[in-house]
Write a protein that binds this DNA or RNA. Structure first.
Lengths: 143, 143
DNA sequence: AAATATAGTTGACAAAATCCACTACTCATC
DNA sequence: GATGAGTAGTGGATTTTGTCAACTATATTT
């Protein structure tokens, strides 16, 4: 593998890390961290989501994940339901409040994204999105 | 701005956040965090780098930045030099040890990037890198 | 049924990050 | 050249985020 390619990818990683740091994706002054917002999103998007899945999916320690979900529970955002097939596992679901909270976080994220691309001409935005799709498509199997 | 575009960008952001979380870019079992590695890199790359610049560049609290740089100093990775023009500002430089430390962090990062793209055919890697370059070029002015 | 493995929880702790007050200096204006 | 406003950097106190190891409960393998 060309050393040059590696350097280019690292450069992109530095760049995009900073982009995300600056457009602090979900979290401007909300009581939820970016991580929590991502987890909430995933609970919503996956069916029969479990703590183990989330822990593995995000590469987050299971004890930490347990606490995050506990926190969601205390706030009334999620409920857990013991699986019928395997009584060790608990499926996690959003409550109505959880859905509306996620919704408001998603709106904030949208506003951030808008400021991230504001002033960029249409055709470039299209190119941007094509590029983003390509990256996902190419890296997909390795993630 | 099309709502659909926003959603696509948010999807990419979630995706790439996860990519970077998983290929924990610099930091596998090194005594430096990913943030510290990025800062070390930037001290190396910029000339006449200052704490204020870094703080602003990364969107990191200045007191935290001060502590990180202090830490680098204690470890012998950086030295500071009071500016002649403005005695409030201190330029930061890597020492020889700082450079070699950065180098070894960079090597670890390279290994992570390799595993991130392993098994992906040449032409796709090229496409990947083109896409990454496009994104940087398009977002550059807004960052 | 004994050993091994997985899901999730908890306590204790460590690392990362923020908030705020402070010093030292610079710069502009009177 | 004193005064006030602003910026660079530091340090104390605290909060948030994340890790480690031990534990319970259930499932799976032998």
């Amino acid at each position: 593998m060309s050393e040059n390619n590696i350097q280019e990818i690292k450069k992109f990683n530095r760049f995009y890390t900073r982009v995300m740091g600056i457009f602090n994706l979900y979290t401007d002054k909300s009581p939820f961290s970016a991580t929590e917002a991502l987890i909430l999103f995933e609970i919503h998007a996956r069916k029969n989501c479990t703590a183990a899945f989330l822990s593995n999916y995000f590469g987050i320690d299971k004890s930490y994940m347990s606490r995050i979900i506990k926190h969601f529970g205390r706030e009334g955002l999620t409920i857990k339901e013991v699986s019928q097939e395997d009584r060790r596992v608990q499926h996690i679901f959003l409550t109505e409040l959880g859905r509306s909270t996620l919704n408001s976080l998603a709106n904030k994220a949208s506003i951030n994204v808008e400021s991230m691309i504001e002033g960029i001409p249409e055709d470039q935005i299209d190119h941007l999105i094509d590029s983003m799709k390509s990256i996902q498509k190419i890296l997909y199997k390795n993630i």
